[in-house]
Computed example of a mutant assay.
Amino acid sequence: MSTFTLLLGGEVIHTPRLETQVAGTRVIAADSGIRHADVLKLLPELWVGDFDSAPDNLPLHLASVPKQRFPAEKDSTDGELAVSIALKHGATRLNLVGAFGGARADHAFLHLALAVRLAEQGIEVLLSSGAQEGIPLLPGKTAAFDYADGTLFSVLGFSNLDGLTITGAKWPLTAVEVPFGSSLTISNAVKGKLEMALGSGRALLLAHPYPLPES
């Protein structure tokens, strides 16, 4: 297995869990995502993008990372370009770090949908901000997760879902149909060993391994 961590432009916080997930991986930064490198104690082997949002005054060890520049007017985002480059370098597993939040909701949506498509192509994908993480669910497979009791999670559907089963949860489900756009699978909590199975459809688990800040 060849694992690449791609540093994207969304928000990232350092957590021990995230540090463990990215340790020992190959790293590519996408434009402003390079600002996460020092936070996670990573040194990218490549920095890609049009650099329209590249941070100023980077330390020398980051400013000197080899660059692959693309025109500002292009058909792919910097994040998708980073994914393509990682796959060309033999990636079979991807950590998309900084995939959520930030100023661009459209980019966040793209990363979620792209992760589902990549999973359908046989690429293992983890999306993470440190505080929350996403994992695509594949039809016909049972997925098990290591989250502690009380961990908040939701299942995001990108289509109608059929045969969704959730065990090890406060509100378990057994082979249910979930219409596209339903809130049925939003805001559940782990209770035991969380496992999920999906009959058909496109979906992604979104979990919060660390408690949400109180409002």
Rank of each mutant, 00 (worst) to 15 (best):
L87K: 12
A113M: 13
G98N: 07
E120Q: 13
L96H: 03
H111R: 10
A108F: 02
V83C: 00
I85Q: 09
L81S: 08
T92Q: 15
N95M: 13
A108H: 03
L110R: 11
L81W: 03
I123H: 08
R117L: 11
R93V: 11
E80N: 15
L114V: 09
N95C: 02
L118R: 12
L94T: 04
A82D: 00
L94M: 11
L112V: 14
F109W: 13
A105D: 09
E80M: 15
N95E: 10
V83Y: 12
V83F: 06
V116F: 10
H89K: 14
A113I: 08
L114Y: 01
R117A: 11
A105P: 09
L96A: 04
G122H: 02
G79R: 08
L126C: 06
L96V: 05
R93W: 09
V97Y: 02
A103Y: 02
H107T: 01
H111K: 04
A113D: 10
F100N: 01
S84V: 14
L87A: 02
V83H: 05
I85D: 03
L94V: 06
L87D: 04
E120R: 13
G98I: 05
G102I: 02
A103N: 13
L114R: 07
L114A: 13
L127M: 10
A103C: 13
V125D: 06
V125F: 01
L110Q: 14
G101V: 07
S84R: 14
T92R: 07
S129P: 00
A113R: 13
V83Q: 07
A82P: 05
A103M: 15
G79E: 03
A91L: 06
D106M: 09
G122A: 07
R93S: 15
E124L: 12
F100D: 00
H111V: 08
E120L: 00
A99V: 06
G102N: 09
E124Y: 11
A113G: 12
K88D: 15
G122W: 00
L96P: 00
A108M: 07
G102H: 03
V125M: 08
A119H: 12
L87S: 04
L112A: 14
A108G: 00
H107M: 02
L127G: 02
A105R: 11
E124C: 08
L114T: 06
L94E: 03
E124F: 00
A103Q: 14
G79C: 03
A115Q: 05
K88N: 15
N95T: 05
H107E: 04
L87N: 01
L112K: 00
G122F: 08
R104I: 06
G130K: 03
H89M: 12
S84L: 14
E120Y: 09
A113Q: 08
L118N: 05
L127N: 04
A99G: 11
E120K: 13
S129Y: 02
A119Q: 14
G79M: 08
E124W: 11
E124V: 10
R104D: 01
Q121S: 13
K88S: 15
E120C: 01
H111W: 07
H89V: 08
H89G: 00
L87C: 03
A86C: 01
L118G: 02
A103P: 12
N95D: 04
L114N: 07
H107W: 02
A115S: 15
G90Q: 10
